[in-house]
Design a protein around this nucleic acid. Structure first.
Length: 127
DNA sequence: AGGCTGACATCGC
DNA sequence: CGCGATGCCAGCC
């Protein structure tokens, strides 16, 4: 598990220049890229922002593709509990935690501390 | 063509 | 209060 990845054959090789096949995947990337440092958001929040609130799963799936994108700080995206559920999908299981720690986001046992404080809601910040 | 899976979320028991 | 079951969409077998 955790290693077939590269959906869409690496998302058409990280989205070709044209990228007219803009699926909500790309929207997720944009939102994630807009997440300010030291802030985190949840799959559900992004899903809601994109209008697919019922399918937070797809956001997670999108992140899987984002995993192949260096510009996508996937470490800033966690589940609704602020738990680093996807850390095992990173280069190293601790990479996510380290990245967050670098941004002054306290993570204790895969759980983001003060999640409410660092939580960044695109539906609010980007509205 | 059909079915399973997946970095979630929410309700039910 | 804890675990189980269901819904969602898209990609992959």
């Amino acid at each position: 598990m955790a290693n077939q990845c590269l959906p869409m054959s690496k998302l058409k090789q990280v989205l070709p220049s044209g990228a007219k096949d803009i699926s909500f995947f790309e929207q997720v990337y944009e939102v994630v890229k807009l997440i300010p440092p030291g802030r985190v958001t949840s799959y559900g929040a992004i899903a809601f922002f994109l209008g697919t609130k019922m399918s937070a799963r797809m956001v997670g799936w999108a992140m899987n593709a984002a995993h192949a994108m260096p510009d996508i700080p996937a470490h800033r995206v966690v589940n609704r509990k602020g738990l680093l559920t996807g850390k095992m999908h990173f280069e190293t299981p601790t990479k996510m935690e380290e990245c967050l720690a670098k941004e002054n986001v306290k993570v204790l046992n895969d759980q983001i501390q003060d999640f409410e404080k660092v939580f960044w809601d695109p539906a609010v910040e980007l509205s």
